[in-house]
Simulated assay, not measured.
Amino acid sequence: MAGSDPQKLIAQADNLTTLSITRWNADWSSATPLYEQAANRFRATKDYERAKAAYEKASKGQEMLASPWDAAKHMESAANMAKELRNWREVVIFYRRASEFYIQCGRPQPASDALAKGARALEDAMPEEAVQLYTDAITILEEDGRGQMAFDLYRSATGVYIKLEKYSDAAPLQLKLGLAADKCNATNSQCKAYLSAIIVYLYSNDYKQAEKCYNDCSQVGAFLKSDQNRCASNLLAAYSDGDIEEIKRIAQSSIVSNLDHPIIKLARKLPTGDVSALKDNTVREGEQPLDENDLT
């Protein structure tokens, strides 16, 4: 029986989809279930390469049958097979295609989820591509008015940037998270994001940018009144005073401990630069010029 052998299922399905005159001669309604059966059997025997190819064909069949939801599901399965094969470029292509199918059937949440799955799979192998997938997943949710569902995606993308030591990208992404949280009235997430951005700047030895970030964020009433604001203020003051022990103490505080794990790890390593040099600069900037007419 043809159905007992996935190879025969594929051959039978291929015969049904062979085009004699035009593409509409293909019998996709009969062929697609055969591709699906073959794909599942190949996967069960861990023949991931042939399973991947069969899922691609099953997805194409569902697309031809005007069923984008099922086409998306099969494309995600193909992406999983590509992940097993460590074919990272195909992982990107398949998850993006799955997302497109979900959009076609008006399902933005699964469309975003598909991109996020791809991003998580690629964090180590293709981190830059992972960040782009996270960013696109965030955009889908925010355009659909579901910004609050994107918070974890912002955090994941920040974590990738930190792994890459791209702190000048990580901090602004936290500020974008803060803005997204503000639109959703998620005050706690907003304040944590602002403190996180300040910590990232301090870790990268950019005290001036950390200070500017603090001043800008303090224009937001919710942050100004928050425990995270007081923590940031005390941290910056400790830097200004060159007080290494105080910096370390604040970095161990419960406020910092409630931030995301990648941010906590950075905070625990503070200070990373020459704090005494910063104190000397602060003193020099605070000195008053000599008044020759003042004889006191």
Rank of each mutant, 00 (worst) to 15 (best):
S4V: 15
D5R: 04
P6L: 00
I10R: 06
D14S: 11
L16T: 08
R23P: 08
W24H: 12
S29D: 13
A31C: 10
E36I: 04
E36L: 01
A38T: 09
A38Y: 04
N40Q: 15
N40F: 04
R41C: 00
F42Y: 11
A51P: 04
K52A: 09
A53P: 08
K57Y: 05
S59F: 05
A66Y: 10
W69I: 08
W69H: 07
D70R: 02
K73F: 06
E76R: 08
S77R: 02
S77D: 05
S77I: 02
M81P: 02
A82I: 01
N87I: 05
E90K: 12
Y95D: 02
S99D: 03
S99H: 04
Q104D: 08
C105P: 00
G106S: 15
R107K: 15
S112K: 00
D113P: 03
R120M: 08
R120F: 01
L122M: 10
L122H: 06
A130D: 06
A130H: 05
Q132D: 14
D136C: 08
I140W: 01
D144Y: 03
F151K: 03
L153T: 05
Y154K: 05
A157W: 02
V160I: 13
K163I: 13
A170C: 14
A171K: 00
P172L: 01
L173N: 02
L173I: 08
K176C: 05
L177S: 09
A186Y: 11
A197K: 09
A197T: 00
I199A: 05
V200C: 02
Y201F: 12
L202K: 01
Y203K: 02
A210K: 01
E211A: 15
F223H: 09
L224K: 07
S226I: 07
C231G: 05
S233P: 00
L236K: 02
A237S: 14
D241S: 14
G242N: 06
D243R: 05
A251H: 07
S254M: 13
S257D: 15
S257A: 15
N258R: 09
N258P: 04
H261Y: 13
H261P: 09
P262A: 03
I263M: 10
I263S: 08
I264C: 11
L266V: 12
L266A: 06
T272C: 09
G273M: 10
K279R: 11
N281R: 12
Q288D: 11
N293P: 05
D294I: 06
T296A: 09
T296S: 14
